[in-house]
């Protein structure tokens, strides 16, 4: 009995962790390549959730809704890059972060005015409703969708960054913007690529969260999105793969805290974990030397 509840919790934790992984990856793509914290990612994620929700409610197949939400989120992200980041890219790191904070306010307000601030409920139909039971442990189709989409997107991102010319150019910009320019990379274009990629991932995470909880509000950006910053830090902010480890880790940690410590304790544990990591190992679990994490800021 106790074991199967535990396994169930771990499965639920992995689902949540998958969502965290995607958002944290979105954060660390911009952080790792451009060295800035794009606070608006948490709201882009929320916008993605609402666009996906609206499309599904309108009868669009889930896969298409997912892609639609990703594209919408990427477009928002590109607008932010153009207006909120590019003109400020030579300022100190705090200034562009503040401008992305301005955009998060705009996006949240936009969402409350467009979709209302009451929770929006999604009723899943057909195959999405199915649950598989293994004794006392059950796994829903939605959870499987979350896992598959997350793993798929992570693999695609990895391939893009490691194997393609765009990925090489991104890494060159991350290493040294001036030298990359000499090597023929156009940093301005790479800024847009990084923001767009990060928007795609955040948008996908939004749809997945909507499917998983089947309820969303305009405040999930602050509730869930901000926690992805903790995930990024725990994994290592300048190593974008840190999120793959830290996402599931924190997802499980959070769900177990809810199960055994009370629902209200969850944020306490997650942010406490983040602060401990910042103090003990500021470069994160998978980060490089502490020197690189210091050099970025």
């Amino acid at each position: 009995m106790g074991v199967s509840i535990f396994i169930q919790q771990v499965l639920n934790g992995l689902t949540l962790g998958a969502v965290y992984t995607l958002i944290a990856l979105a954060f660390s793509l911009v952080m790792g390549i451009l060295g800035i914290l794009n606070l608006a990612i948490s709201e882009i994620f929320m916008i993605g959730a609402f666009v996906g929700f609206s499309l599904i409610t309108a009868g669009v197949p889930v896969w298409i809704a997912l892609i639609g939400a990703m594209i919408a989120a990427a477009l928002v992200s590109i607008v932010i890059a153009r207006i909120g980041y590019e003109p400020l890219r030579n300022a100190n790191h705090i200034t562009p972060m503040l401008s992305t904070l301005g955009f998060s306010m705009i996006l949240q307000n936009l969402a409350t005015n467009t979709w209302g601030s009451d929770p929006m409920q999604l009723t899943l139909e057909g195959w999405l409703e199915t649950r598989f039971s293994f004794g006392l442990v059950s796994l829903s189709v939605v959870q499987i969708v979350v896992f598959v989409v997350t793993v798929g997107l992570c693999v695609l991102t990895a391939l893009l960054i490691q194997r393609t010319d765009i990925g090489r150019a991104l890494r060159a910009v991350a290493e040294n913007r001036e030298i990359s320019r000499i090597l023929g990379v156009r940093p301005r274009r790479m800024i847009l690529v990084a923001f767009a990629l990060s928007g795609l991932l955040a948008g996908a995470a939004g749809v997945l969260v909507g499917l998983h909880y089947s309820v969303i509000t305009p405040y999930i950006g602050v509730e869930i999105g901000l926690k992805a910053i903790a995930v990024m830090i725990v994994g290592g902010a300048t190593n974008i793969w840190g999120a793959l480890l830290a996402g599931p880790l924190i997802g499980i940690l959070e769900v177990l805290t809810v199960a055994y410590g009370g629902a209200a304790m969850r944020d306490f544990v997650v942010y406490g974990f983040m602060i401990v990591i910042l103090l003990v190992r500021p470069q994160g679990l998978l980060g490089g030397s502490s020197k690189t994490s210091g050099g970025r800021v």
Binding site: L37, H93, L226, A264, M265, F268, Y271, M274, G294, V297
Partner: peptide, 20 residues
């Protein structure tokens, strides 16, 4: 020990911890 953005993120964490 923390500079710039890392400090900002740590303070976000602090605020959330106090609230919870």
């Amino acid at each position: 020990r923390l500079k710039g953005l890392y400090l900002a993120m740590a303070t976000i964490g602090f605020g959330e911890i106090v609230r919870t």
